[in-house]
Design a protein around this nucleic acid. Structure first.
Lengths: 235, 235
DNA sequence: TAGATTGTTAATCGATTAACAATC
DNA sequence: TAGATTGTTAATCGATTAACAATC
């Protein structure tokens, strides 16, 4: 226990330096891995695990221990020699890096199947993100509640965004209307868009865009299937 | 026109060599980019574009022309010096690499919002993949049709898979039941699983798994938002 | 033929792994 | 103290970019 206290103490100190370090550019590859670390650490945390070494985590995650230590170090020392990493501390720290606890507020544009599916996931609340509402243009769905969230007409987007802080939007509309809505969101000062509409959005100087293509993993799977078919044929 | 003929002729010759080359290991990074090339080429094709140079494509896609040429070359020459690439040919060729036209058959496990959303997308038919049906355990939904596809009870999975060739499955169940269903699918000889259940599946020696975590891009967006917030504070 | 643009090699860059000294 | 395990440097590996000769 006293050991753990010291870990936290040390790490807090390290964090002071880490703050400055986080301004230092962290490679895309590392950032891309953070959500996965976060997931595994949550499982460990829920199973009551107090500490873990890079060696054990590496066995769980099928990555090298070296990579784990290297990654954690981008942000200043989160661990302690001879002890390993405090699961809860590391989980919270990575969460912080990922913007959990920033209490971002979001809206979901499009109340079709994908919009509903996303509205119903735990991924927002789990990261301290508040879903404010959904928007749609279909009169049949406007006014309904989906998972407790109101559905507003897309025409009221401007009004709503002026009355509420909307940090980012989840875009699940048909591709045809996506660029136009993206422009409106950006003009309203929305800082980010998670774009599920299978189309390129226009340049939005003040808005960050993360494109999600659900078909990409499908194609990767098809590629792998075909390769293993070809390999099998060769025998 | 005569020019184009020659391109095709040359490329077919190159393809003979390409077949052998495709057995040569292509790096993960290249494969990961193929779906994106495929998307852009489809747009070009639909807009009636006949040919394109690596320089022009690079401007469109915001990647270097060098990378495009390097990538295309992994599979044997798809282009022609002094001319560029034939859009249709290149599109078809990449599609082939990605297993389009292999006529894979798939089933969707889970007829909740995500299962429905995926069932309704064009991503399957666009790649020559046939959706056979959905499976669910909810009596209220079993027997219904979703986008024209029948919904069967999950208890009939074995029966169905023995009667029909199922190349891969799209797994959209709650995480609790996902590992068990994965084992059943693998035992039935299903070659691949596109796993949307937010959980690790057990080792399946004969089945390829592609995990999709919808929360990953969300977290990357949050990370980017927070970084830009921090940068703004510093000013 | 001259111009354009690929295919391909070589140079650079970045990311991963290995190794080990620091230190808890 | 001795053992364990990190933090960190150095070595390796792979991927990207630059350059240019080949060739259409």
């Amino acid at each position: 226990m006293e050991h753990i206290e010291r870990v936290v103490g040390t790490s807090l100190k390290a964090d002071g330096a880490g703050q400055r370090q986080s301004q230092v550019r962290v490679s895309r590859a590392v950032i891309a891995r953070l959500p996965r670390y976060h997931r595994y650490l949550r499982v460990l945390l829920e199973s009551g695990r107090g500490r873990i070494s890079s060696a054990e985590l590496s066995a769980m995650m099928h990555v090298t221990a070296s990579q784990i230590r290297q990654d954690m170090n981008c942000f200043g020392g989160f661990g302690q020699q001879g002890y390993g990493y405090n699961v809860k501390y590391l989980y919270n720290k990575i969460g912080e890096l990922l913007g959990v606890a920033e209490n971002y507020q979001t809206v979901i544009i499009g109340a079709g199947n994908l919009g509903r599916a996303l509205a119903g996931t735990h991924m927002f609340e789990r990261r301290g993100i508040t879903r404010l509402c959904l928007f749609d243009c279909d009169a049949a769905v406007v006014g309904q509640r989906i998972f407790g969230l109101p559905v507003y007409h897309i025409d009221t987007l401007e009004e709503f965004c002026r009355a509420n802080r909307v940090d980012f939007a989840v875009l699940t509309t048909p591709r045809e209307v996506a660029p136009d809505i993206a422009l409106r969101l950006s003009a309203l000062g929305v800082s980010g868009i998670l774009n599920f509409a299978n189309t390129e959005l226009p340049e939005l100087p003040h808005t960050l865009v993360e494109n999600v293509h659900l078909s990409d993993p499908l194609m990767r799977l098809c590629y792998a299937l075909r390769q293993s078919d070809l390999a099998a044929e060769d025998e």
